[in-house]
């Protein structure tokens, strides 16, 4: 994470700066995902348990009643009993899926914003002929001096 921040601050080159932002961003993703890890757990893709098939079958054949019945059977979700926290489903632990969702969409949004940034850099290059900050500053300064 810090290397990304370092690149953003230290370099004057705009493309390299964007790479730095990308590094920074990916590192933040890693922080989030590492929080969601549960030791010895599986990816949050539920192994097809008997319950799963039953739920589909019963819901398909009978009516919504069955689903409500099943819902009633779920233990209190906010119960924080350490031994049973990840157990009551089917005895298998799964990693926390919520950060995965957040980061998944963040990655796609990240590349979209990156593209906007790169597009701006390309236009800056066309306008100033350079993508180094100090050179752009010089050009701006000269233009202002000439104008006044």
């Amino acid at each position: 994470m810090m290397t990304g921040l370092y690149v953003v601050i230290s370099t004057g080159n705009l493309v390299k700066k964007l790479v730095g932002i990308g590094l920074f961003q990916t590192s933040v993703f890693q922080l989030y995902i590492s929080l969601s890890k549960v030791r010895g757990a599986q990816p949050p893709i539920i192994e097809k348990p008997a319950k799963y098939g039953d739920a589909v079958k019963s819901a398909g054949e009978k009516s919504a009643e069955t689903v409500t019945d099943l819902l009633a059977k779920i233990p209190e979700v906010t119960a924080l009993d350490p031994a049973s926290v990840y157990d009551p489903l089917m005895g298998v632990a799964y990693s926390n899926p919520l950060p995965h969702v957040l980061i998944l969409t963040a990655i796609v949004v990240g590349v979209a914003t990156l593209a906007v940034g790169l597009a701006l850099v390309v236009r800056i290059r066309e306008a100033y002929g350079t993508i180094e900050e100090d050179a752009i500053d010089d050009a701006e300064y000269k233009a202002e001096v000439n104008a006044s």
Partner: peptide
């Protein structure tokens, strides 16, 4: 981070939506 909402989604998915991929 792992206790409240994420856990709730994990449990509810089986009965509400019934697809294996919770994400």
């Amino acid at each position: 981070a792992n206790s409240y909402v994420g856990l709730m989604y994990l449990k509810a998915t089986i009965t509400d939506i019934s697809i294996p991929n919770v994400v």
